[in-house]
Design a protein around this nucleic acid. Structure first.
Length: 614
DNA sequence: ACGCCCTATT
């Protein structure tokens, strides 16, 4: 019905409307109009000009008026507030919302609650809302439902303080709170990263007698664990066990994940025996976590065994566990096995996803098979899986590593074309790619550009920059970046220290190098095979063979596994000094360890035979 | 609800 037509209708039916009518009469008139005209309420100027909060309330709470008519009336007011002198106020909202609840129109009711929560001019402390709700004389069940929903709405809108006010109000007034509503709050506050508040709220849930589920407990434990506070997560679990909540497989998985991340196999094993004791069976995610843990410490064979065990136990492998084990085989260079697993996955009717292709593409990139990479990239797109930023970064890195700069740049262009914004990985990949091509200036320029392009440099970015300065022999700048990165909230890691130590070692500044090694240990970072290799190489080059041998011995004691580069450094050091017996002993040891020597080892050894022992 | 893909150092 058009505005004009309705105007006419109202005039015909109610010819005697005047502004002098009482509120009650006007409300009655409008209500009748709403009922008679089957709605599409447009209205007359005279009616509109008289509209106020009281009249609106009378209409909305008119029991003779169907809820649907109230809703239409309200929507009309919202849509046309340019025509009326009155905007629905909080009271109107509350009255309508209560009616909607009574009529079980929950979704619409929630929509209007959302308006109350988010519109600035409707915002009101919970006590204000409460008194309006009371005024309407609603039954307790409706009131409880309304506050429960209001609590959820505040949580959804990340209005945590307001949500807590509602929570407290409900608590103080004996209104029962649904655990599922509390979950909404827990998940929302966890999502914004406020783990302390998450825990704090959980405590309040426990205190106020909300029925705690293992789900809410696990959510909080996961929040703590993801922030690296596995001990507190563990304590919370133990505490709740004392209150009769039984952890389930999700709880255990969360803790296993956290313990694995900090390489705490003791913690992992403790969880596994607890599961065993409590009769909680591991699921495919448990196995995925264990497989990742083993693989990341190089025990890929054991990981494969575990994978077999899982299948034997009848636990269905899914695309996650396949992707994980494919990825680890790729990373250890076993592409044959990776592709076999990929076939197995599809034969089982599982659908590979972007992660699965990402793992494979990474493996093929690392193997330098860029033609095969292109095939995989095309294949996945044929299957309707879109390229993502991770894969583009991976492929770009692959091209850089093979020195195919044009192809690498093509990836960059493709990235833009696909609407991806270069992320910190992209920048780091390009910077290190340029470094490897000896284009240091461009790499530095790119790294300096990051902040103004809105990408915060991370530890890897700073490490790359430090490495460049070290290679240039510019220790002043290297140190400046090194000390400065912490002020920007990025902690140096073992690789950062290694880059610096390598810089100093190569320039013969062994004293500085050792000082840095001590510093990293003091800060809880253990020297790795790179640290040792770098120092050994430095000592050898500058004739301190016995220092190098001492380091080599220490490396074994610390259970660090030397690589072919480590052996090459020390063997060539010994050879240069004519200590060929020792050199050959180490050569045998290297072969024994299953390492494949490269040509430089042989020429060193040959050289040792005709060098005078000094 | 938990678990899968990318970057830096010898």
């Amino acid at each position: 019905m058009s505005t004009q037509r309705f105007f006419k209708t109202v005039k015909e039916v109610f010819p005697s409307i005047h502004s002098s009518k009482s509120n009650r009469e006007i409300a009655e008139t409008i209500s009748k109009a709403l009922m008679n005209s089957g709605l599409h309420l447009q209205t007359t100027t005279s009616l509109l000009s008289n509209l106020n909060s009281h009249i609106t309330h009378l209409i909305l709470s008119n029991a003779h008026l169907p809820t649907q008519s109230c809703l239409h009336f309200f929507n009309f007011l919202q849509r046309n507030h340019a025509l009326t002198s009155y905007n629905p106020d909080l009271r109107a909202y509350i009255t309508l919302i209560c009616r909607l609840y009574k009529a079980q129109k929950f979704a619409v009711a929630k929509k209007f609650l959302n308006c109350i929560a988010t519109h600035d001019d409707l915002r009101c402390p919970v006590l204000g809302i409460a008194s309006l709700v009371e005024d309407d004389g609603n039954e307790a069940k409706i009131v409880a439902k309304l506050f429960d929903m209001l609590f959820r709405v505040y949580a959804d809108n990340k209005m945590f303080e307001e949500a807590l006010e509602v929570f407290d109000y409900m608590r103080n007034n004996g209104i029962e709170i649904d655990d599922r509503s509390c979950m909404v709050y827990l998940l929302a506050i966890k999502r914004v990263g406020n783990v302390e508040a998450c825990l704090e709220f959980f405590r309040q849930m426990v205190e106020s007698g909300v029925g705690i589920t293992v789900y809410s407990m696990t959510t909080v434990i996961d929040g703590l664990c993801k922030r690296g506070e596995v001990e507190r997560g563990r304590e919370l679990m133990d505490e709740m066990v004392g209150k009769g909540i039984k952890p389930n497989v999700f709880t255990y998985n969360t803790l296993i994940d956290a313990y694995s991340r900090r390489l705490d196999s003791g913690g992992v094993n403790e969880m596994l025996s607890l599961m065993e004791k409590e009769g909680v069976a591991g699921n495919v995610a448990t196995y995925t976590l264990l497989i990742d843990g083993l693989s990341s410490s190089g025990k890929i064979k054991e990981a494969e065994r575990l994978f077999g065990e899982m299948c034997k136990k009848g636990i269905e492998a899914d695309v996650y566990v396949y992707t994980s084990i494919i990825s680890w085989n790729c990373r250890s260079g076993n592409m044959k096995r990776a592709f076999a697993l990929f076939d197995e996955l599809t034969e089982r009717g599982l659908i590979p996803n972007a992660h699965t292709y990402g793992a494979l593409i990474n493996g093929v990139c690392k193997a330098g098979q860029m033609e095969a990479v292109e095939i995989l990239v095309n294949e996945m797109q044929t299957k309707g899986i879109d390229l993502n930023l991770v894969i583009l970064n991976t492929v770009m890195d692959g091209y850089f590593k093979r020195g195919m700069i044009d192809e690498a740049l093509r990836m960059q262009i493709l990235m833009e074309k696909k609407g991806f914004k270069a992320d910190v990985f992209s920048y780091n990949t390009i910077a290190s790619g340029l470094c490897q091509l000896n284009r240091h200036e461009e790499a530095k320029r790119l790294l300096f550009m990051m902040p103004e392009r809105g990408v915060a440099p991370n530890t890897v970015s700073f490490t790359t920059l430090i490495d460049i300065y070290c290679k240039e022999g510019n220790f002043v700048e290297a140190k400046r970046v090194f000390r400065g990165m912490e002020k920007k909230g990025e902690r140096p890691n073992t690789v950062t220290y290694n880059a610096l130590i390598d810089g100093y070692s190569k320039k013969g500044k062994l004293k500085e190098a050792h000082k840095l090694r001590d510093e990293m240990e003091d800060r809880g970072m253990m020297p790795d095979v790179y640290t040792y290799t770098t120092l050994i190489h430095g000592e050898c080059v500058f004739g301190k063979l016995d220092e190098a041998l001492k380091l080599f011995k220490e490396l074994h004691q610390k259970k660090v596994v030397p690589t072919v580069v480590t052996y090459t450094a020390i063997i060539s050091g010994l050879s240069k000094e004519g200590r060929s017996d020792e050199a050959f002993t180490l050569y045998d040891e290297m072969i024994e360890a299953g390492l494949t020597p490269d040509d430089t080892v042989y020429s060193s050894l040959a050289c040792s035979l005709h060098t005078e022992r000094s």
